[in-house]
Amino acid sequence: MSESKPRQKEKVEPEREFTKATSTSSEEPLSDMTKDKTSERRGSETASIKAHEFDPHFKHEISNFHGGEKLKQCFQCGTCTSDCPIARFSDSYRPRSLIRMALLGLKDRVLSSDTLWLCAACFTCTDRCPQDVEVASVIRIFRNIAVKRGVIPQIFKELGSNILENGIAYKIPELRLKKREQTGLPPLPKRNPKALEKLAKETGFLKKLKGSG
């Protein structure tokens, strides 16, 4: 249609204030970063999908990743959304809609959507999709691509750096390590963060973690 206008490449939102690693148990105030900011942000400026937003190649791009191969088989039945535990309690998270946007080529909308980070990776959708779309993996692919654009929620950034520092995803306080031994458990095996850092450099993972601040 329109001769390709330069697509708004970095339409990335400033890092949103995803909460810091609130572990599931702490009694901190609830974080609900995703509460319909999507729609606020879109507001009237996206009342209709504009010509420049279509990227017909996006679906092929996703299909080329492991886990994305069957994306194009989706016939929009809604099974994924309807039994998604998150969708049942969220105003905005809809796996089918993310798939639909990808099939339409709305790359920027998909990649900058906050809801992307709400999938619990429970794989219910993947197991139930009648067309063998690996929905949860497709969402993971979206996330991986969003990360390349510099979008990483704080929590994942923290888990990532913890791993590189300690070998595991959490910093365990000294006190608790001592307590382990009091309860008769053997000491926690040593880890080898050096090796991990090496690998992280090699693959560019380190850069991804640091890249966005």
């Binding site: 609130t22 572990s23 970063m33 995703t34």
Partner: peptide
């Protein structure tokens, strides 16, 4: 059905 634990930290309320 899932308990929602994996998204705690991104959104605590849903879990």
């Amino acid at each position: 059905a899932c308990c929602g634990a994996p998204i705690a930290g991104v959104n605590d309320k849903i879990p």
